[in-house]
């Protein structure tokens, strides 16, 4: 199947704002799926509610656009009934870690064979830019007009601690690495969690001195620290500078997964 066939061409152009990174993440996900040679009828995309979750509406295969935060629970049902189905979940930072936080940690604990692509744009985009559990400390949003005064989640550490078999983080700037990570996630049995730091110029950037999508991409390029370098720095006693974040593959392990068809 060609890459273009994985898009619902009759639904494009999509509803995302100009410069929104969701489209980029969609590209990387579909490219990974295409490279692996999956067939349409054996692939299912599931998503919750939010900008990120509209992605499932643009993929050309069976797709389930569900309720806020519950995508992983729906996906659990699909996967347990049809274990040979490749189930990919699109979720966002609010969807996954606020309203869906409990489903998220339990899906990781069960280590169910799903691939979760979490588009983390640090904000609730669909409702117009409210603070999320992943809004950085000090950032301005419509519900944190004086700066976010709570600490954000580190979703990758959460997924790792909860038991996911594969955990990685990239940004919408690192498209090659992201595609590779989603590919790995699809190949590793058990729950694969790929967090993608993504720009939301409309709601997040405009309030935080990054009106242009390209400015946000520059920010990702400058602040993303490769895991190997971060590890080296840590060993040398150098802490991560404020505002920087680590990208790379954090976990790849083979704990017993759920929802994998036993080989006959």
């Amino acid at each position: 199947m060609n890459l273009e066939d994985w898009y619902r061409q009759d639904r494009l152009p999509h509803i995302y704002c100009a410069g929104c990174g969701n489209g980029t993440v969609l590209n990387c996900t579909l490219r990974a799926v295409q490279e692996l040679g999956f067939r349409q009828e054996e692939t299912t995309f599931i998503s919750g509610i939010g900008c990120s979750s509209r992605a499932s509406g643009y993929t050309s295969s069976d797709s389930l656009h569900t309720t806020h935060g519950r995508a992983l629970a729906f996906a659990t049902g699909v996967k347990l009934v049809k274990p040979h189905q490749h189930v990919i979940v699109f979720t966002g930072d609010g969807d996954c870690s606020a309203i869906g936080g409990n489903h998220f940690i339990h899906a990781c604990r069960r280590n169910i064979d799903l691939t979760v692509v979490c588009i983390n744009n640090n904000i609730y985009g669909m409702t117009g830019g409210q603070g999320s559990p992943c809004t950085p400390y000090g950032a301005i949003t419509t519900t944190t007009p004086y700066g976010m005064h709570e600490q954000p989640f580190d979703l990758c550490k959460l997924a790792e601690a909860a038991g996911a078999n594969y955990v990685a983080r990239w940004t919408s700037y690192h498209v090659k690495e992201l595609t590779e990570a989603i590919r790995s996630g699809l190949e590793v049995p058990g729950l694969s969690f790929i967090e993608v730091m993504t720009q939301c110029p409309t709601s997040f950037g405009s309030k935080n001195k990054m009106r242009l999508a390209t400015q946000m991409i520059d920010m990702f390029r400058e602040n993303a620290v490769l895991k190997v370098k971060a590890d080296r720095d840590t060993a040398a006693g150098k802490p991560l500078e404020p505002g920087k974040f680590i990208v790379g593959e954090f976990v790849r392990r083979h704990n017993p997964p759920l929802g994998v068809e036993e080989s006959k």
Partner: peptide, 23 residues
């Protein structure tokens, strides 16, 4: 397949997913 979910929200979600998968 039997699965004990984390709460009732997830229970209904899972059976809806399972239903679409054909069961």
């Amino acid at each position: 397949t039997f699965v004990q979910m984390e709460d009732e929200l997830a229970s209904v979600a899972a059976i809806i997913g399972g239903s679409w998968a054909g069961a």
